[in-house]
């Protein structure tokens, strides 16, 4: 959003809002009843044994919690924007850790398996996604051009392709390609099948992104190029595509990030990627949560890295034009 130069009062600094918020928060904490948690123990000097403290204990605990919550909000509201963002991120992350902690995780188990998860699982995930992304991009360029061409065959093939591959669940495509291609005489192993499914599926989505990107370039650019005597291929390569890249990059980045996680669907083919190992490594010792949370953190970290790269590319193209 584009910021106005006149700043409104912060909602938090209006007494009515503050009181309303406090009451709501108090009600929520009261409803959820935190008496039997670490907070209750902490307040036992006031409320006595948490187990027997009854409504009084419940009220005291929720009151203290809501005061802390609101004071925290107030304190943050006085900080500068950047600091605010940092603090809120940090606090939310702590909450996430607390959530993970509540599973009674065995850290030594994670330690013993994380090497394998990264060296085998993460590596395979990145490898499959990276190859698929490259192929999907190539498909998307060809598909978008075909969809915009006035060649009936090209248009029909491209639109059939996008319709089919956007119309089927990715998992179904994975099965169809793995089981179906050999029927047609193409023996493909699990990993190439997975890559084919991911590339075709994401190629279809990205075809639409690329098409929209190309179409968003004003027709005056085509006319000026034609008036100079440029042929279509040259116009696309030198005039239209370079201008559509800044438009294409953000949604394409989202596709990359989504694909990274959708690559887990190829685990049904027995590919030992991150999600597959997350589901299997904890099985013998019945320590699933450890592995799932570890995989969660790895996926998340990877996504954050990708988001940073995407922001960089976007910034680069914004400077250029």
């Amino acid at each position: 959003m584009f910021v106005d130069t006149v700043v409104e009062d912060k909602a938090l600094h209006k007494p009515a809002f503050l009181i309303g918020l406090s009451v709501t928060v108090l009600a929520i904490f009261f409803a959820f009843n935190f008496t039997n948690t670490i907070f209750g123990e902490f307040l036992s000097p006031v409320i006595g044994n948490p187990e027997e403290s009854g409504l009084f204990g419940r009220f005291v605990v929720s009151f203290v919690l809501s005061v802390i919550f609101v004071l925290n909000l107030l304190a943050i509201s006085f900080a500068r924007l950047k600091i605010q963002i940092l603090i809120v991120w940090f606090e939310l992350f702590l909450l996430f850790l607390a959530f993970a902690y509540s599973f009674d995780l065995k850290l030594s188990f994670i330690q013993s398996r994380i090497g394998l998860m990264i060296s085998k699982g993460l590596f395979t995930t990145i490898y499959i996604s990276a190859v698929s992304i490259v192929i999907a991009t190539a498909i998307a360029i060809v598909g978008a051009i075909a969809k915009l061409s006035n060649n009936g065959f090209a248009y029909a093939i491209a639109s059939f392709y996008t319709s089919l591959f956007r119309g089927l669940p990715l998992l179904l495509q994975v099965y169809l390609i793995y089981k179906g291609l050999p029927q047609l005489g193409f023996m493909v192993d699990a990993i190439p099948s997975g890559i084919a499914a991911l590339s075709l599926c994401y190629g279809a989505y990205m075809t639409e992104i690329f098409r929209a990107g190309i179409q968003s370039i004003p027709k005056g650019q085509w006319e000026a190029s034609r008036a100079l005597g440029f042929k279509s291929g040259l116009i696309l390569r030198k005039i239209i595509l370079p201008q559509s890249i800044p438009i294409i990059v953000p949604p394409t980045g989202n596709q990359f990030i989504a694909m990274l996680k959708d690559s887990s669907l190829v685990s049904v083919l027995g590919i030992w990627e991150l999600m597959y190992l997350a589901k299997t490594l904890g099985q013998r010792d019945f320590r699933h949560m450890e592995m799932l949370l570890t995989a969660a953190m790895i996926y998340w970290g990877l996504t954050i890295i990708l988001e940073m790269i995407q922001a960089r590319i976007e910034r680069k193209y914004q400077q250029k034009t």
Binding site: S112, W272, Y276, K279, T280, L281, Q283, R284
Partner: peptide
């Protein structure tokens, strides 16, 4: 690979 003790992936 998800069927201990019949078949599963070990630490290695």
């Amino acid at each position: 690979a998800n069927w201990a003790p019949f078949s599963y992936i070990n630490d290695a």
